[in-house]
Amino acid sequence: MKPATDAIAARTTLDDQALLTHELSRIAGQLAPGATAVVDMTRLSGGASQETWAFRAVGGSAVDVGLILRRAPGGWRQADGAAGLETEAAVIRAAGAGGVPVPEVIHVLAPEDGVGRGFITRRVEGETIARKILRDAEFAQARTFLAEQCGGILAHIAKVDVAALPPLRLSPARQQLDDLLRRWRGMNLHKPVFELAFRWLAERCPPDPAQPVLVHGDFRNGNLIIGPDGVRAVLDWEIAHLGDPMEDLAWICVNSWRFGALDKPAGGFGSREQLFAGYEKAGGRKVDPQQVRFWEALGSLRWGIACTGMIDTFRSGLDAGVERAMIARRASETEIDLLNLIAPRA
């Protein structure tokens, strides 16, 4: 990033910080009983699709509540394909009512709040960094049951009453595959491994589900707040949709999220068998491992195409940062993962 751009970004963050602190202090009492102000407004991430801010609602000596704001970038912009922040808040509430561990939604921003679109949740303490969860001693006990627990959570997600959800896009396998192929053709690049994957997937595409269920869409390390006691909250419901529950079971097995633990396909902490057993035990339907394998390959291919797409983002100057360029050079990781899934060697 050029220094001038850096300065603008820093100034914008400061302006936003002051604005958010000022406006949210006006409604502090709604965010935590007895609170009179919000303090320590800190930008946690500046994703292209959402901003995340951490802050505290305080009042007197007794009130001090940690909160998280998820907001459209700059307050208003919204990425294509995202469900929308008000919708996301409603999905989180429905999932919570269905027994899924989620951060409690305290407030959905209204126009009169004056800070854009978004919602505020209670802050859940814990770890999201995969390398720590997979290696640190304090999570050793949790690692023995995380896969089964994740299976159980995914069963609860799949069982959320669809009638209780806001309208969500329906996204079954065939449509995802067609959309991805269209995107890939639009890039006009030649990768024989991706072509092999598209062929393999087309031959195995499961039929549209008779009863589409809630699918989180990005259930993996990084989006799970984990403590020594296990999963405390499932975050980032931004791309939740209706579809095939096997999609979520597969996405957490995609090798990119195992962080080197090749032989522990479920998130790098457990086996597929543990994950599936947890799912079935919690009332999920019988798992078809071949369909999960389809979705795992589709997930790897989607991530590989997303990495490849960074070439354009980088070259167009939209984000000319080194990080962006280096993500483009990770597409080959998904190519070996795809070969291992499609044509495994003994």
Binding site: V193, L262, R329, S332, E333, E335, L339, N340, A343
Partner: peptide, 26 residues
């Protein structure tokens, strides 16, 4: 064809991401 795809992919990873665990195993 499969042998070629493996070979070409490993040649890429040797440059792109030689520490990637799936590359090191393959």
């Amino acid at each position: 064809v499969i042998d070629h795809l493996y070979a070409a992919t490993l040649e890429k990873l040797a440059v792109d991401q030689p520490a990637y665990a799936a590359y090191r195993r393959a």
